[in-house]
Design a protein around this nucleic acid. Structure first.
Lengths: 232, 232
DNA sequence: CGCTAGATTGATAAAGGTCAATCATTGTGG
DNA sequence: CCACAATGATTGACCTTTATCAATCTAGCG
């Protein structure tokens, strides 16, 4: 296997051009430096990586698989705040405590960093730390894009924007993997499970997408898909 | 005037305790270091700091005043993605271009940094860069909290969460300044202007808050306010 | 083969959007 | 100093959409 596939990676669109958006953010040397201070852990589907409000001793980077971050509300409802993919960072504490619960959606391979060791490593390597800074900036923008999707009123538009976000590189395959459940999607988009179901069926009925199976969506009519996505 | 009030500041809850949440993030020395590479500019209400999609040459830190960041949608609707306050950073580019338009809400005093100079300064000072990293982590969490507010269905609950967010330090005064218009609030929360208006009146009618004037809200009944905020 | 978690579908009611009219506040020019 | 214009805010009537409740269906899996 190519070593660049196994050392930790970070994915981000950097501040400045002309670096390609999909170019690896970290150099091989930086990845090795990180690998040297990381532990690789494998988690099974539904396994909880950490719980909200617990002491934050580790930061994670995903190598393989999908993880969700969520918060349980007083009412018993659950808010999914993020789906995390390979080359994403998670577990950044607030005042020493985790803010969300992180749970594996699929089997996943994670790099775990001791937070103190990582901080010292970053402080001593300005170039590497800058990569993290770019990554966080990227995450911040993504969070704001998510906010736009969630602020929409129409379930169909929300869903279209959600599918587009999962299609991480633009212009990638028409097939998008949906490792999470409909219920996860609902609590991410701020919809009821039933509305998600109705919206998926509506998109299907209109011939915009089809679902080869429940965990896969295929865009059949890209122009109309785009129209729905941007009509608001 | 205390020099710690005029050098640039950053506000963030750090990763690790026991630093107080409202303690200044930057040391005096770091502030001076930043001040040395910054230009101070004053902007008037409604003045545009930069436009979306334009070349991003500067990064800004707010010293005084309030700025909003928004995106105009194809339909003509405007999405306000953030209200920026003193000690907030904005203008972080994506691929060399600004992502949002930034416009002053009130008169404001800004520190402007040349992006290349700032990057070099950060790379050469691991401690200072780490402060920026903390700040961005903080912003990311705030963005996710905003997402929760916006994902709610009920206008009254959205508004309550919004007011709470504006009350930047918890347990601060019961009076909250609302420098932005109702229309700005609406396009931030994903509501119609009319719904914001009705929700404010509803809160007022129930005796939860009162509005000494249009740009000020006072929480009269904190327990009930909190109940509305967390009922979802 | 039947159990179970997840997903779909239908009927009803509540909530916000939209359209339209009116009111309030601020600032400007006569 | 007042009248008026312009922007922002409020209120009402009506309509569209989603949440909710409830029943049913489906796909995995032991």
């Amino acid at each position: 296997m190519d070593p660049s596939d196994i050392e930790p990676a970070l994915q981000a669109t950097p501040f400045l051009p002309p670096i390609r958006a999909d170019a690896p953010l970290l150099t091989d040397e930086q990845r090795m430096r990180l690998a040297a201070i990381a532990t690789r852990i494998r988690v099974q589907p539904r396994e909880v990586v950490y719980r909200e409000e617990s002491a934050a001793r580790s930061v994670f980077i995903i190598a393989e698989g999908v993880v969700k971050a969520f918060k349980d509300m007083p009412s018993g409802k659950r808010w999914v705040t993020a789906f995390l993919y390979p080359a994403d960072v998670f577990g950044l504490a607030e005042n020493g405590l985790y803010v969300r619960t992180a749970q594996a959606v699929t089997q996943a391979l994670l790099y775990r960093f001791d937070v103190n060791v990582l901080i010292e490593t970053l402080k001593s390597d300005g170039e590497l730390q800058f990569k993290f800074l770019c990554k966080l900036t990227h995450e911040l923008r993504e969070a704001q894009r998510q906010t736009i999707a969630i602020g929409r009123k129409d379930a169909i538009g929300k869903l279209a924007m959600f599918f587009r976000q999962l299609q991480r590189e633009p212009g990638a395959s028409r097939d998008i993997d949906l490792p999470m459940t409909r219920s996860d999607i609902a609590s991410y988009l701020g919809l009821s499970l039933e509305s998600v179901s109705r919206a998926t069926r509506a998109l299907e009925r209109r011939g915009v997408v089809c679902f080869p199976n429940r965990h896969m969506v295929r865009i059949i009519d890209p122009p109309q898909f785009e129209r729905i996505e941007s009509t608001m």
